[in-house]
């Protein structure tokens, strides 16, 4: 038996429900409204008949040369990511994005020194794609592994999973950027084999182009599924290996003489 006087105040109930609805809308709206714009291909989708990849000849990779790194930085607007004012230099070195880096190695037995560029290896079975909770880290039909920065929530699980430390998290606001490589604070990104160039019909990456321009030709880029492509021919002509081949990831980037 209920007494009317003990009924809750309806205005208060209405206020509470309105508050809940408003709070819900504020929580949900940004995600729904801001992420409906999907990137559109220009009519032609990418095809699994192609698998982009590269072969890196470490014997040709020159000591001290960073042309590939500079070219990548310029192509993808990484050089536009500036250190926040007053921030510690050493700290920023560990926080700034790097899609490609030069690594110098020495064999512990023979002391032979080798140089190589290291970037996303574009695995056929990428661990970063496996672990990404939202599917932001994905592999295109043509083998390119990249991040959909519309749905990356910035959890960095892909960075934990990548065996090559190929990914970078954007640690600060980005003032300037290039059209083909939009980026934002709080998302993860990595080498996408200059997907914008490939989609526009240019058949080469900025790093491979720069390396060739400098006369080193250490990077051969192309379609691994096309037996007549330069990269397929190069792979057939000499033994090559994958980094961390024990993980059986079938990488799209291969190395010789390492």
């Amino acid at each position: 038996m209920s007494d009317c006087k003990q009924q809750p105040d309806m205005k208060r109930r209405e206020f509470l429900s309105n508050t809940v609805v408003a709070a819900g809308a504020v929580t949900v709206a940004p995600g729904v409204l801001l992420t409906t714009t999907e990137a559109k291909a220009d009519g032609k989708g990418v095809s699994s008949n192609t698998r982009w990849g590269m072969l890196i000849d470490t014997n040709k990779c020159a000591d001290g040369c960073t042309s590939c790194v500079s070219a990548c930085d310029k192509e993808n607007g990484i050089d536009l990511v500036k250190k926040p004012e007053g921030h510690d230099d050493a700290m920023w070195e560990q926080q700034r994005p790097q899609w490609i880096r030069k690594v110098k190695l020495r064999d512990t037995q023979s002391s032979v020194v080798s140089n190589l560029p290291l970037m996303c290896q574009h695995c056929e079975h990428p661990p970063c794609v496996d672990v990404c909770p939202t599917g932001a880290s994905f592999k295109r039909a043509d083998g390119i592994v990249m991040v959909d920065r519309h749905i990356c929530i910035g959890c960095r699980y892909c960075m934990m999973a990548c065996p090559y430390k190929a990914r970078s998290f954007i640690h600060a606001d980005v003032a300037e950027q290039v059209v083909n490589s939009p980026r934002g604070k709080g998302c993860v990104e990595s080498c996408n084999l200059c997907a914008h160039r490939l989609d526009a019909g240019q058949g080469n990456t900025a790093c491979a182009e720069a390396c060739a321009k400098d006369g080193h030709n250490a990077i051969v880029f192309g379609d691994l599924k096309d037996p007549n492509s330069a990269v397929s021919k190069a792979l057939k002509s000499q033994p090559s290996r994958q980094l961390r081949e024990d993980l059986m990831l079938n990488t799209g980037v291969r190395y010789t003489n390492v």
Binding site: T27, V28, P30, G31, V32, T35, V129, D130, V131, C132, P133, T134, G135, I151, C152, I153, G154, C155, R156, Y157, F169, I170, K185, G186, C187, V188
Partner: peptide, 19 residues
């Protein structure tokens, strides 16, 4: 990195991810 995108974590799933 993007806590404002929590709704995405609740609406888009990659079931191979333990997350």
């Amino acid at each position: 990195g993007r806590p404002d995108r929590l709704i995405i974590a609740m609406t888009k799933y990659n079931f191979k991810s333990i997350f």
